[in-house]
Design a protein around this nucleic acid. Structure first.
Lengths: 143, 143
DNA sequence: TATTGTTATACTCTATAACTATA
DNA sequence: TATAGTTATAGAGTATAACAATA
């Protein structure tokens, strides 16, 4: 099944780039989500496709490294808003850019016409996966 | 980057199907590798894209569940040959078939012509990733 | 009562380095 | 000496269930 092989290839690019940036893949994914906008824990759990208890650990580790921070949410003292620190934003940006470069380079092998067609086909597949999965898909960490 | 979203979608299918079969994704991947042929530990490490020490643990856990077994290799008393048991083969087969079904159903949304084109483009991408990655790609567990 | 997030617990997965047995 | 595999160690990631604080 070529789809699985292609997926494995993309994941391996993602993992290797994260590694080069000193980031565990799950943290890289989370940083990319947060680069979009600060989020509360529950939101982050949904966007990353994991349980809220897992997010506590992810955020703890990233916070320990100074990549993000929790701040209070005015009006709801139960909640926390998680935001990237400047180093966290740098890391997210650099990581995202390098992943994009690698994948663009891979796609460049297709030639312009085929590449456009391929992109359209991917969009069609992603759309047909349905809105049920739309949220999960954001969890890939790149946008 | 649609490639990452597509990859995430495929991985989520892989993981959810594995889950439904009571298999951790890494074990599902390993079982699919072994469904191709029995392998020695080092071979399995290469095919799964992990270090040999990690394979010891993977095989230990799967062996405990009766999905595979280690047997001696005639002529080299250091080595072990890992083979699926009948339940292991059943699990691998059922898992692989269900993943294939799900992905085929996804691709069915494309229509016949587009699907053929898309498959050709994927093949081109996989080829252009080069033989360096050819081994890793087998590690996706489906063939 | 319901929701937000954390803690407790238990696995799986992984890498690195050191080790054993065999080649 | 070199190779095949295991063990030891450490850490990340995850889920489930129980909990505290707040709404």
């Amino acid at each position: 099944m070529a789809l699985v092989r292609l997926s494995t290839l993309v994941q391996s690019v993602f993992t290797q780039v994260a590694d080069r940036h000193g980031l565990p893949p799950s943290q890289a994914r989370m940083l990319c989500v947060l680069a979009g906008r600060p989020s509360r824990m529950a939101e982050l759990a949904r966007a990353c496709g994991v349980e809220k208890a897992a997010v506590t650990g992810l955020v703890d580790r990233a916070e320990r490294r100074g990549l993000l921070l929790r701040s209070p949410v005015p009006g709801d003292r139960r909640a926390s808003l998680v935001s990237l620190t400047p180093p966290g934003l740098s890391a997210a940006t650099a990581f995202h850019q390098e992943v994009t470069e690698h994948l663009d380079q891979l796609l460049a092998g297709l030639g312009e016409t085929d590449r456009a067609f391929f992109a359209a086909a991917m969009d069609a597949l992603l759309r047909s996966a349905g809105p049920d999965r739309a949220r999960e898909l954001q969890a890939d960490g790149t946008r």
